[in-house]
């Protein structure tokens, strides 16, 4: 296989497989947070910021995959 083609396949695989975990995790975080807000709408102000922070931390593995894919493609 040519080097160039292998690079593209590698980057695509890295990003695609790396996005599975964070997607599931963020979905879980959002569903639980929305459930909590639905039960107790007054707590919206405290739950929503914490949800964003938790989501950002969940997202970091996806961001690692993105960085790896970018390095494969451009560096």
């Amino acid at each position: 296989m040519e080097m160039e083609a292998a690079k593209y396949i590698g980057a695509g695989l890295a990003m695609g497989l790396g996005a599975i975990g964070p997607a599931i995790g963020e979905g879980l975080a959002a569903s639980k947070a929305l459930e909590a807000i639905g039960r107790n709408p007054e707590a919206n102000g405290t739950i929503a910021p914490l949800m964003f922070v938790a989501m950002a931390i969940t997202e970091s593995t996806g961001i690692y995959a993105l960085v790896v894919a970018l390095i494969i493609l451009f560096a």
Partner: peptide, 8 residues
């Protein structure tokens, strides 16, 4: 993790 999150 902190820097790649923002940058990424």
């Amino acid at each position: 993790s902190l820097s790649f999150r923002l940058f990424g």
